[in-house]
Amino acid sequence: MAEQVALSRTQVCGILREELFQGDAFHQSDTHIFIIMGASGDLAKKKIYPTIWWLFRDGLLPENTFIVGYARSRLTVADIRKQSEPFFKATPEEKLKLEDFFARNSYVAGQYDDAASYQRLNSHMNALHLGSQANRLFYLALPPTVYEAVTKNIHESCMSQIGWNRIIVEKPFGRDLQSSDRLSNHISSLFREDQIYRIDHYLGKEMVQNLMVLRFANRIFGPIWNRDNIACVILTFKEPFGTEGRGGYFDEFGIIRDVMQNHLLQMLCLVAMEKPASTNSDDVRDEKVKVLKCISEVQANNVVLGQYVGNPDGEGEATKGYLDDPTVPRGSTTATFAAVVLYVENERWDGVPFILRCGKALNERKAEVRLQFHDVAGDIFHQQCKRNELVIRVQPNEAVYTKMMTKKPGMFFNPEESELDLTYGNRYKNVKLPDAYERLILDVFCGSQMHFVRSDELREAWRIFTPLLHQIELEKPKPIPYIYGSRGPTEADELMKRVGFQYEGTYKWVNP
């Protein structure tokens, strides 16, 4: 592979701008107003304001973009700056750019259920340069409990009458099928589907988006991507930290609602779906819905739930269990780990287990898709061969690698495990991989909904998990304890083995 010439960040961002501006969906010269509902909250200060700053800094926003914060707290732009700027990672050389960014910011205080507050917000936006005809993007960085009041008031008082209007809704989209349907029906009564952007930030990850290209742009994968060759698929999300004093919020939802029903299920769809007619948003989402419709409700015998306990040999936070978090209700049975087996009941995947695993306070930070292939028929190497695996590593250190057998150097035919490896950090030294939120917010500006969740996708996802969630809430089974920093409950490994996964433990990928 030829040595790549190092590029400056300015040059890299210039390439990104060229890609972005050559499309006809990006209205570079139009006025846009980006409204952050819930501007005083954690999500706004840690993710949304920093993301908008990065896009502005790199010249990736339309030229005439204004940012308006809205929340109940009586704040000023200076207050917003004070709480969000520490997350910007701005350099001293960017000081003038930073001043320009905050000059485009404003803030309006108001209630979430008060019509007069929204009329005041609308008047404020109209007073901005060309504000009355601007395109408006409303980001709901809010708890779902206020979605209905907020969307109703936005629709009645704050819509642009000339430009387009788009609304970005953060997960969780309800707690179960019934609450999700209620919320979807409410929002759909106010906005068209092409105006609604239900954001799952995992769909903005580079390697998640790469799944489609790997599958449908490489001839070698087509013939082997089926039940005849693939023994099982494992989708993993692991965090090495616990709730760390923020367990009160987590306890309301648990690990299945927080990660599995959305992030992991979306990745499953991209692995299992048929080739779409095109890369058009609805063509892709149509195929994802077909996959979900082929999955039956989760069966309790295919589920393992766990909850982390303190590690007596650990240090600091590792010595504390979930129930030691003062914000967690006493005696909570909320799971911090889950392993679930699903089956896609169609011709391509009949009988292939899709194993979804996620948890907190585990032994490493990792998100990946792992396809394990069947054993080689007619073994001539005296059971020395391990199964081939194709691994798409989402985070950290984005990579695609194939675990395969090669001859060990020497005189004899002794096979050993090795890999074919594409590590993004080595291959793409001159490429700026956008943060997931950067990519998705740019998608909203461009009107691309491919990486957002459609209402029928959402409904099918909740259909699969709601009976299990209701059973857990009714019966309150005690989750299996696992030690902070471990791989999780051993019962999860036993479940995976029972459905056909072979864990060798003899080879570990190392970032080159």
Rank of each mutant, 00 (worst) to 15 (best):
I224M: 08
S179R: 07
V169F: 04
A39N: 07
D200N: 00
V77R: 07
P86M: 12
R198G: 01
A103L: 08
C232D: 01
H32L: 06
V12E: 09
A78R: 05
W225E: 03
I255D: 01
P50T: 04
D194T: 09
I255W: 03
L121P: 01
F221N: 05
L20T: 14
Y118G: 05
T65E: 03
D181A: 05
V68I: 07
L75R: 07
Q195F: 04
T236N: 11
G41E: 01
R104V: 13
G245M: 10
S117D: 11
G23E: 14
Q119I: 06
L140E: 02
R166T: 00
W164M: 07
E206N: 05
T243Q: 06
F21L: 09
R104M: 14
T51R: 08
F241M: 06
I33P: 01
S188H: 09
A39C: 07
N64M: 06
I48K: 02
Y249F: 14
I167K: 02
P240K: 08
S84A: 11
K47S: 04
V12W: 14
A71M: 03
R182E: 13
V208M: 12
L130Q: 14
F26E: 12
Q111R: 10
R57F: 03
R215G: 02
N229W: 06
Y70W: 12
I15E: 13
I199L: 04
S117R: 15
K47T: 02
E63K: 11
A115H: 13
T76D: 15
M159Y: 10
C232W: 03
R257Y: 00
D30I: 09
E63M: 08
G247A: 05
L16F: 15
I187N: 03
F26M: 15
T145S: 09
C158W: 06
Y202G: 01
N135Q: 09
R215C: 01
N126V: 08
D30K: 10
S179M: 05
V213G: 08
G163I: 00
R246Y: 02
D100Y: 09
F34W: 15
H32M: 09
S180T: 04
K89M: 15
F88E: 02
P240T: 10
R227F: 05
R17W: 08
L43E: 02
T145D: 01
N126A: 15
R136S: 09
Y107G: 02
T10F: 15
I35E: 02
R72K: 01
Q22H: 14
F241G: 06
V233L: 05
R166S: 06
S84K: 08
Y139E: 07
L142N: 03
L75I: 13
A134R: 14
I67N: 00
V108H: 10
G14I: 10
S106R: 14
S180M: 05
H124K: 10
S29M: 09
R17Q: 13
A39T: 06
G204M: 05
T76W: 07
V208L: 11
P223K: 05
L7F: 14
G41Y: 01
F21C: 13
H201A: 00
A231H: 04
Q178T: 10
D30V: 05
R182C: 15
N135L: 07
N105K: 02
P240S: 11
F221D: 03
D30G: 05
A6N: 15
W53S: 03
A6W: 15
Q161Y: 12
S73N: 09
A90C: 04
Q28T: 09
V146C: 06
E63L: 14
N153P: 04
E252T: 11
L235C: 09
T51P: 02
F101M: 03
G204A: 03
T10Y: 08
I80W: 05
E170F: 00
D79W: 03
I220S: 02
L211F: 06
P86V: 13
L177E: 12
G254S: 03
E193H: 06
I167G: 01
I187K: 02
Q111K: 11
D181K: 06
R219G: 07
L16M: 08
H186L: 05
L214C: 08
L20I: 10
V68T: 04
A25P: 15
F138N: 01
T151H: 09
Y249M: 03
N105E: 00
N226T: 02
R198C: 05
Q195V: 06
F191K: 01
L61C: 09
S184H: 08
V146Q: 13
L75E: 08
P240H: 12
S123L: 09
A78P: 13
L142W: 02
R9W: 13
Y70D: 01
V213F: 10
R198E: 03
F66E: 08
E244R: 13
K152Y: 15
S180W: 04
F101N: 02
S73D: 01
D100V: 09
T51E: 12
R72W: 04
Y70Q: 14
E93K: 07
F138G: 01
Q209P: 09
M159D: 10
W53C: 01
G247P: 05
Y202Q: 03
Y202S: 02
N210S: 12
I52C: 12
S188E: 12
A71S: 09
S179G: 08
T145I: 04
A44D: 00
A127E: 12
L20Y: 14
M207Y: 02
V169D: 00
M1V: 06
G242C: 05
F221H: 12
I162C: 11
R57S: 07
G38K: 00
Q11R: 13
T76R: 10
Y107R: 01
A127T: 06
R81F: 13
D200H: 04
P172A: 02
T10E: 14
R192I: 06
I167S: 01
P86T: 11
K82A: 14
Y197D: 02
F56M: 07
Q178W: 14
H27Q: 11
Y197C: 01
P62R: 07
R136P: 01
P62Y: 06
R246N: 01
V213A: 12
S188Q: 05
S189W: 10
D100N: 12
A44I: 04
V169W: 04
I52L: 14
L61F: 15
A115L: 12
L98I: 12
G174E: 10
I48Q: 01
N122G: 10
A231F: 06
S84M: 14
L211S: 01
Y70N: 12
C232T: 07
Q22I: 14
Y70H: 10
N64H: 10
Q195R: 03
L177P: 01
M207S: 03
S179I: 03
P86A: 15
K95R: 08
E156D: 14
P223E: 05
R136Y: 14
T243V: 15
G38V: 00
D30Y: 13
G245Q: 13
I35A: 09
R215D: 02
F138R: 01
K95S: 11
V213Q: 06
K152T: 07
T236R: 03
P62Q: 07
R257V: 04
I35T: 10
Q111T: 15
